[in-house]
Structures are given as structure tokens and as C-alpha cells.
Amino acid sequence: MATIAVVVVCVGYAPVAMTELWPYARPGAPAFGEWLLSRAVSPRYVADALATRIGPYGRSLTAMIVHSVLGGALMLLGPVQLLSAVRRRIRLHRAVGVVFAVTVYVSMAGAALYLVRTAPADAFSGAAFWIVLATILVGTVLSVTFGIFAAVGKFPDLHQRWMLLCYGFLMTAPLLRLEWGALPWLLPGLSMEDINRVAIMHLGSVVAFGALLASRAMDRRTTATGVAGTCVPMPVLAAVHLAGAAALAWIARSCLGWGAEGRRLLLAYLIPYAATYAVMFVRHRRADREGRSWAREEWRLHLAALCLAPVLSASAALLFERYAGLDRQTALSAGVTIGCGMLAFMATTAVSLRVMYGRELVKRQRLAAARHTRPTPSPAA
């Protein structure tokens, strides 16, 4: 059901992405996303949002069109990759994978050019949104790059994890559009820029968590080669819980001081965060009870990373306020929006290093055993 849902969302979003910027190049050109959103919410809601984009998009229109058209292509290539992997169509998976990787690089180059030419304050919904876009761009490019390295190095399990994380970052685009249409019904009266500020508080957490769930669902191993014990012992896990709780308390206190908007942003962050934590905690305990040591270790690494995400967010907020010249609210919003995604990336890196080290350890042990069992030549020989 999850696979079907992803495929439907991606295929449905592809024409929206491909035509999204046509009206900026030729006024009056068809744009399926505008048409759908105008009927789901209101024409004024859409017109007010798009009117502020003419200048920033106009400075990088060609790059943005390349980014959006290829982004739509990625929405179609992703399901092909997922289904070909599940069905074990190796040749198709490899061929489409090359096209997918090249498309990611070119599409992200267009996005990078837009970000370089656009001041953070001129981005849609301000500097926090610019920081989120830049973080997603870097995460997407690094994920697909590490996925390629894992495939070349014959680590199919790591290749799978990195590519799922890469596609999770790409899924922020269709999920944001869905929130543009759905959240005005829950939060009436807000502009699209306000909806953006709410949505980015949890999108990074949601897509990274989705990638983790997909990875764990496709990995049925009880143990992993050479991986034993845990690199997050109980005292460390307790310490990161305490640090995360303290950072969450500081974030909550700061948000509650901003009135209704602060409470809205805080709930948009805390509800998905709490749901993600609950699922990770339960899955970790279940894997421990069932003796599935590899699943337990992966859940444990990601659980520790999730606990540290508020710490990173609070630290980033202080740095943004001090060195980037952002006001306190914008700095904290930016810090919160990148925390979960960045820590999920780091947790995937830790998982990869554990797997690579484990296999290298087993390889060295086998070589050492082979040397010890090799017969010693006699003096006469």
C-alpha cells in the first residue's frame, strides 16, 4: 500500500512539476498545479503567492525550468527504480539508475543556480525556506553520490538505503504541494507563505522517516555480516535522550513566546516528531525482544540521531542568529527545519560505516585464518 501511494503521488505530481513555471516564461500558459490549487483552495490564494515570485524566478528562469522539468522526470523515474528493485529486474534497474543519477545532478544544478542568484530574504517564505532548499539540495546530491559509490563497491544494502534517502529528499516537493492544498482547510486564513513556514517544520522529518521505514521493510536480515554489539550503549542513549529533551524544552519555550504563530509552528514540529519517535522506540524494543540484532542496531542509531536533532536545531539557530544576521524567530525556524533531515543523513552514514567495517573485519579474519591453516613447506622442499 505504501508503494502504491508513493507511485500515485509521484505520477500525479510529475505533470504539475513540469508545467509549474511555464506561466512565468509565457503568461497564460497552462499550469496544472495552479489550476488544481485554485479549485482546492481559492484563485486569490494562488494569485497572491505567485505574484511575489515573478522577480526572483525571472532572474533564473531557464535554470528553474530545467530544474522543474527534470524534477518531474525524476518523479517518474523513481517508481520505475523502486519497482524494478522489488521485482529484481537488474538490467532495467541499472539502466534507469544511470539516467536517474544524471537527471538528479542536472536538476539540482538548476536549483543551485537559482539559490546562488536569489538572496535568502527573497526566497519564497524568506530566509528559512532558502536554508531548507539549500540543505535538501546538498542532501540529495550527496545521497545519490553515496548510493553510486555503494553500488560500485558492491554494497547493495547500502545502495538501497542511500537511494531511498535521496528519493525521500525529492519527495519534499510533492508533499509540500499537498500541504498547500490541505492545510488551508485546517488553518483557514493563512497565505501560502504562512503554509510554507508550517510545512517546513516537519517535512524533513517525515521524508527521512519514510526512507528509513522503506529501508527496514526491504531488509529482512536478522544479523549483518561482521556487525556485533552496538556503538550506542545504554549510557550514551540515555545521555542523548536527556540532551534532546533539554533542547526540545528550549525550542518549545522560544516558540511559545511568539504567540499564535509560534504555537502553530511548534505543533507542526512536535506532533510529527513525537509520532516518529514513538514508532522508532517501539520498533527498536520489538527487534530487541525478537533477537534481531541488526534491526535493533539500525533503529538504535536512528533513534539516537532523532534525539540529537533538537540539539543540532538549537545550535544552528544560535549560529544563524549570530553569524547570518537572522532574527531570532527566523533563525530558530531554519534550525528546526534542517535538524531531523541532517541527523537522519548522519545516521545513514553511521549505518553505512558499521556495515563496511563489519565486512572488512570479516574479510581480514578470513585472510588471517587462511594464513594460519596454510601448510608450512618442509626444509627439503
Rank of each mutant, 00 (worst) to 15 (best):
L92V: 07
R94I: 09
V98E: 09
V98Y: 14
V99W: 03
V99I: 08
F100C: 01
A101D: 11
A101T: 11
V102Y: 12
T103W: 02
V104W: 01
Y105H: 09
V106K: 05
V106Q: 04
S107P: 03
S107V: 06
M108R: 01
G110C: 07
G110V: 05
A112W: 13
L113R: 15
L113I: 14
L115F: 10
V116I: 14
V116T: 13
T118K: 12
A119H: 12
P120L: 12
A121C: 13
D122S: 12
A123H: 13
F124Y: 10
A128M: 02
F129K: 07
F129G: 02
W130R: 01
L137H: 08
V138Q: 05
V138A: 08
G139P: 01
G139L: 09
T140F: 07
L142P: 00
L142N: 04
T145M: 05
F146Y: 12
G147Y: 07
I148P: 09
I148M: 14
F149Y: 14
A150T: 11
G153R: 14
K154R: 15
K154G: 13
K154M: 13
K154Q: 15
K154S: 14
F155A: 10
D157Q: 14
L158W: 06
W162A: 00
M163T: 05
M163R: 06
C166V: 04
C166G: 01
C166A: 11
C166N: 06
Y167W: 11
G168E: 03
F169L: 08
M171W: 10
T172N: 02
P174I: 11
L175S: 06
R177E: 00
R177D: 00
L178I: 12
E179V: 15
A182W: 00
A182N: 01
L183S: 05
P184M: 06
W185P: 10
L186D: 12
L186Q: 10
P188K: 02
P188N: 05
P188E: 06
L190H: 13
S191M: 12
M192H: 07
E193S: 14
E193V: 11
D194K: 11
I195T: 09
N196D: 15
V198E: 05
V198P: 01
A199K: 02
M201V: 15
H202D: 09
L203K: 01
G204I: 08
A208K: 04
G210I: 05
G210E: 01
A211T: 05
A211C: 08
